[in-house]
Amino acid sequence: MTKGLRVAVAGGGVFGLASALALARAGAQVSLHDPGPGGANASAVAAGMLAPVSEALTDPAAAPHLDLMMAALDLWPAFAQAWNLTLDRRGAVLLGDEARLAALTQAARTLGLDLPTLKADRSPALPGGYGAAVSGGLRVQADQRIDAASLGALAKAAAALGVRFSPEPPPEDLDWLVVATGPSRDLITEAPELAALEPIKGHILRYGDLAYDGPVLRGPGAYAAPAAGGLLIGATMEAGVSDPQVQDEVASALARTAAGVFPGLANRPWTAAAGVRAATPDGLPLVGPSRAPGVILAAGARRNGWLLAPLAGAMVCAYAKGEDPGIWADRLSAGRFTA
Rank of each mutant, 00 (worst) to 15 (best):
M1E: 11
T2P: 00
K3A: 15
L5F: 02
R6H: 10
A20P: 03
V30C: 05
S31G: 11
G38K: 10
N41C: 15
G48Y: 02
S54L: 08
L57P: 00
L57K: 04
P60A: 13
W76A: 05
N84M: 08
T86V: 13
L87C: 02
R90V: 03
A99N: 05
L104C: 04
T110W: 12
D114C: 11
D114K: 12
P116L: 11
A120Y: 02
G131N: 11
V134R: 01
R139F: 01
I146R: 02
D147H: 11
A148Y: 05
L154N: 02
A160G: 14
L161R: 10
L161W: 01
R164G: 05
S166F: 07
P167L: 10
E172R: 15
L174E: 02
D175F: 10
W176H: 11
V179L: 05
G182I: 05
G182M: 09
L187F: 10
L187H: 02
T189M: 09
A191M: 01
L194A: 08
A195F: 00
K201H: 03
K201T: 01
L205H: 01
Y207C: 06
D209T: 15
L217T: 00
L217W: 00
P220H: 04
G221F: 06
G230V: 05
I233M: 00
S242Y: 00
D243A: 08
P244C: 07
Q245M: 12
V246H: 06
V246I: 09
E249Y: 06
S252T: 10
L254Y: 08
A258F: 07
A259M: 11
A259S: 14
G260V: 00
P263A: 11
G264T: 09
A266E: 15
N267L: 14
W270D: 03
T271F: 07
T271E: 09
T271W: 02
T271G: 09
A274H: 03
D282W: 04
P289R: 15
A292V: 09
G294L: 15
G294R: 14
V295M: 06
A298W: 07
R302W: 13
A320R: 07
K321Q: 14
I327K: 13
L332I: 05
